[in-house]
């Protein structure tokens, strides 16, 4: 399980990195961020890049800051950076809680936010966060930049709108007025890939849920918001019966992935449980 040979590049600035990517992408060059998904794929020789452009030493790609109501996250910001609140308030708390579900400590010390998005694993927690909150990603190449909505970015299982010569350099995560959030993930063992997970964000207005965003991940090819479930909750009180109704709606509208571990029927039941529990979690973070 040794990777195939490749040529290593360690650019110190973004323009240099983009130039290298432009030069080598046509012949199998790739960006190396945290490497916690790419390197295992290389070990199994499922990925055989000819060139690796290591962006870990580009200082401007790391760290996060609030800009115009959105958290702008540099692509090589590591999962571990979210642990103790990367920003104040409920957004930082939510991101910290969600990050604790990503694999294990040593993986979180290396794996990056942008790397997770570009890898687009259906079970990625960050992909779910981006889609649920309506985030956008900045994609750059040697001659330009574009912003893409998260909902358009993820196109399938480990497939994105990213062109070969483009690099995901930033993620913009807006935080609306809601301060209620809940997250629940179901996996075989702690740190395993999610079999189903749900993130819900809303605000309470006189005891009624408003601006409800409810996303599921790990269950379909890409994470998505479930409008029908959101509609059931909007304007209602956060009560058990309403949660059950929303969970049932979510399960009903699912197009579940199946494999030897999880049948479609089981995945539906898992999503139902994840949605209901995420909603309950929004009321009690203990």
């Amino acid at each position: 399980m040794k990777p195939c040979a490749f040529i290593y590049h360690r650019p110190s600035g973004l323009p240099e990195a983009l130039a290298l990517l432009a030069a080598h992408a046509p012949t199998g060059g790739r960006v190396l961020a945290g490497g916690q998904s790419l390197v295992p794929m290389m070990a199994y020789r499922m990925a055989q890049p000819s060139h690796l452009i290591d962006i870990n030493h580009i200082a401007t790609l790391q760290g996060a800051a609030m800009q115009n109501g959105a958290l702008v996250i540099g692509t090589t910001t590591r999962h571990a950076a979210f642990k103790t609140g990367i920003c104040p308030g409920p957004l930082g708390a939510m991101l910290g809680f969600v990050s604790s579900h990503i694999a294990h400590g040593p993986i979180r010390n290396r794996g990056t936010f942008g790397g997770s998005l570009a890898n687009a694993d259906p079970a990625s927690e960050w992909c779910l966060v981006m889609v649920t909150l309506g985030g956008r990603v900045m994609l750059q190449h040697a001659s330009g930049t574009r912003m893409v909505a998260a909902g358009d970015f993820f196109t399938g299982v480990m497939a994105t709108a990213l062109a070969d010569d483009e690099m995901l350099t930033e993620a913009h995560l807006p935080w609306g007025q809601g301060d209620q959030w809940g997250f629940y993930e179901i996996s075989r063992r702690a740190g395993d890939y999610a079999l189903a997970m749900c993130l819900v964000v809303y605000r309470l207005d006189n005891g009624l849920m408003r601006d409800v965003r409810l996303g599921i991940g790990g269950a379909e090819a890409t994470p998505r918001r479930l409008a029908a479930a959101e509609a059931i909750l909007a304007g209602q009180a956060p009560t058990g019966p309403n949660f059950i109704q929303a969970a049932d709606a979510a399960a009903a509208m699912l197009k579940p992935m199946t494999d030897h571990n999880v049948t479609a029927l089981f995945r539906r039941d898992l999503v139902r449980a994840a949605v209901r529990r995420a909603l309950h979690h929004s009321l009690n973070h203990e």
């Binding site: 290593y8 360690r10 490497g35 390197v39 870990n56 010390n109 290396r110």
Partner: peptide, 12 residues
Amino acid sequence: AAVRACLIFAVQ
């Protein structure tokens, strides 16, 4: 920081 040495290339 604790890291997996199998997921980092020596050159890195």
